[in-house]
Lab assay of single mutants.
Amino acid sequence: TFYNFIMGFQNDNTPFGILAEHVSEDKAFPRLEERHQVIRAYVMSNYTDHQLIETTNRAISLYMANL
């Protein structure tokens, strides 16, 4: 899942690491979701930090390219 992918960046001092920290603390994050459209919609609806949203979009693109 995307959640498992992004958790691989925990403790990294990178934008993906920052995203992983936010996702791990977000109890409502769709952890079992595999459809990138649902993940993107969730982030757009629940996150207000523009940098975090952009990082999510980049992470989703990388995740999709590696499926």
Results as ranks from 00 to 15, higher is better:
T1G: 10
T1Q: 03
F2R: 02
F2W: 05
F2S: 02
F2M: 02
N4F: 08
N4R: 07
N4Q: 12
N4M: 11
F5G: 00
F5H: 00
F5V: 01
F5E: 00
F5Y: 07
I6M: 07
I6F: 03
I6H: 01
I6C: 02
F9A: 01
F9T: 00
Q10Y: 14
Q10I: 15
N11T: 06
N11H: 13
N11V: 05
N11D: 09
D12K: 13
D12I: 07
N13V: 07
N13I: 07
T14W: 03
P15C: 10
P15M: 09
F16S: 02
F16H: 01
F16D: 00
G17H: 05
G17T: 04
I18H: 11
I18K: 14
L19D: 02
L19V: 05
L19W: 02
L19K: 00
L19R: 01
L19Y: 03
A20L: 04
E21Y: 13
E21R: 15
E21M: 15
E21K: 15
V23I: 15
S24Q: 13
S24V: 07
S24P: 03
E25Q: 15
D26W: 03
D26Y: 06
A28Y: 14
F29S: 03
F29R: 04
P30R: 03
R31E: 04
L32P: 04
L32Q: 12
L32K: 11
E33K: 02
E33N: 04
E33D: 06
R35W: 05
R35E: 08
R35H: 10
R35S: 14
H36I: 14
H36S: 12
H36P: 15
H36C: 12
H36G: 15
H36Y: 12
H36F: 11
Q37I: 07
Q37D: 15
Q37W: 15
I39A: 00
I39L: 06
I39Q: 00
V43R: 01
V43W: 02
V43C: 07
S45R: 10
S45A: 15
S45F: 08
S45N: 13
N46R: 07
Y47E: 00
T48Q: 11
T48M: 10
T48W: 08
D49V: 05
D49E: 09
H50C: 10
Q51W: 13
Q51V: 13
L52C: 05
L52V: 05
I53R: 09
E54H: 09
E54A: 10
E54M: 11
T55H: 04
T55E: 05
T56L: 14
T56R: 02
T56Y: 13
T56W: 13
N57F: 14
R58E: 13
R58V: 13
A59Q: 02
A59C: 05
S61I: 14
S61P: 05
S61H: 12
S61L: 14
L62E: 08
L62C: 09
L62G: 03
L62F: 07
L62W: 07
Y63G: 00
M64H: 10
M64V: 13
M64G: 05
M64T: 09
A65Q: 13
A65I: 10
N66L: 14
N66S: 15
N66C: 11
L67K: 10
